[in-house]
Design a protein around this nucleic acid. Structure first.
Length: 289
DNA sequence: TGCCAGGCCTTCC
DNA sequence: GGAAGGCATGGC
C-alpha cells in the first residue's frame, strides 16, 4: 500500500457538496455523507476530497501540482464572496436562493469530456447520464488504481478513435450514439480543438459548437459555462424555463418563450448570468419541488 | 400503461 | 425561420 500525502486547502465561500451535486458534473460520487467526502476524476487523476468548514482535505494518486489542479477545477482562484454579494443585490429571487445555495462554485471541466457528456444529457436524466459516462470511461478510458480500487479516466479522443456507433449504443446512450461518433471524429479531424475552447470568443465558440451533431443551443451553453469559463452564458433547460417563468414572469405553466427569458437574463444578470442560473436551478430542484 | 428526463434532428410548411 | 414529430432507455 502506497502512502499518499494529504494536502489541505483553505477555502472561503465554498460548498463542496452543493458544487458537486448541482448538476454540472456527472462522475463524482459521495462516499461518506457524514464526513462530506467525495471521490472523482479530474482529467488524469483520481481525487478524494472532503470539506470540513473552511478546509478542504485532498488525496490523489498523482501528487504533482495537486493543489493547483484542485484550485483550478473548483475555480478557487476567483473571489466568490465578492460575486455572491454582487448578485444578491440584483433582486430578491437571487438573494433568497443564495440562502440555500451559497458556496456553489463553477467548475472548470475538461472540454472534450464535457462536450460528450452534454451530448448525452439531451432529453435524458442525471442518473442515466452518469451511468453512460461511467460506462464509456470503464470501457475505453485508462484504468487507475487508487486505495485498492479501480477507477477509470474519461477516454481521450485518440482512445475513442476506432469505437463504432453500436459500441456507444451498448454504453446506454440510446439514439445519441451517432452524435457521439461524429463528434469524436470531428475532434480528431481538428474541426474543433482545445485551442478553440481557450482562445475563441463566446460567440465564435458557440457558433462552432452548434455545428457538432447533437449540440443545440442548450448543450452548447452548458459546454461554454462548465468547461470554457464563459460565466455570462445562460443555459435554458426545462427547469430554468420553469423557474424563470415562475419567478420573473409570474406564470406557472412555463409558456414563456426562451427568447424572452434569455433577453431578461442578459439585460438584468449581465456577466454573472451563468452563476445566477446555477443558484436558481439548484434551489428550484432542491427546495421548491 | 404512459409520461418524463438539464433537447436535438429532420421534415414540412 | 418556426412548428411538429420522432427518438433510446429506465424510472415512476
Amino acid at each position: 500500500m502506497i502512502y499518499l500525502k494529504e494536502i489541505v486547502i483553505n477555502v472561503k465561500c465554498f460548498n463542496l457538496k452543493y458544487t458537486l451535486e448541482c448538476g454540472q458534473c456527472f462522475r463524482w460520487k459521495c462516499i461518506d455523507e457524514k464526513e462530506n467526502e467525495f471521490v472523482g476524476v479530474i482529467k488524469d487523476r483520481v481525487i478524494k476530497i472532503r470539506q470540513k468548514e473552511n478546509l478542504l482535505y485532498v488525496i490523489s494518486n498523482k501528487e504533482d501540482n495537486l493543489e493547483e489542479v484542485v484550485k483550478n477545477y473548483f475555480d478557487l482562484y476567483e473571489d466568490y464572496e465578492k460575486i455572491e454579494k454582487r448578485i444578491a443585490l440584483i433582486d430578491e429571487n437571487i438573494s433568497n436562493a443564495l440562502k440555500n445555495t451559497s458556496g456553489i462554485r463553477h467548475l472548470n471541466q475538461d472540454f472534450f469530456e464535457t462536450v460528450i457528456s452534454y451530448i448525452i444529457s439531451a432529453n435524458n436524466n442525471i442518473p442515466r447520464i452518469s451511468k453512460s459516462v461511467n460506462e464509456i470511461s470503464k470501457r475505453y478510458g485508462k484504468e487507475v488504481m487508487f486505495e485498492g480500487e479501480k477507477y477509470y479516466l474519461f477516454p481521450t479522443m485518440e482512445e475513442l478513435k476506432d469505437v463504432k456507433i453500436k459500441e456507444y449504443r451498448d454504453c446506454g446512450v440510446g439514439f445519441r450514439d451517432a452524435y457521439i461518433y461524429q463528434t469524436v471524429q470531428d475532434f480528431l479531424n481538428g474541426k474543433i480543438t482545445y485551442e478553440d475552447a481557450k482562445n475563441l470568443s463566446t460567440e465564435e465558440l458557440r457558433k462552432k459548437l452548434l455545428t457538432l451533431k447533437g449540440v443545440g443551443p442548450k448543450v452548447a451553453d452548458c459546454i461554454l459555462l462548465f468547461s470554457c469559463n464563459k460565466k455570462e452564458v445562460f443555459p435554458i433547460d426545462v427547469w430554468v424555463e420553469r423557474v424563470m417563468s415562475l419567478l420573473y414572469f409570474k406564470l406557472n405553466d412555463g409558456k414563456v418563450k426562451k427568447k424572452d427569458i434569455l433577453e431578461y437574463a442578459n439585460k438584468n444578470f449581465g456577466l454573472d448570468a451563468g452563476i445566477i442560473q446555477q443558484h436558481l436551478f439548484y434551489n428550484m430542484r432542491e427546495n421548491m419541488m
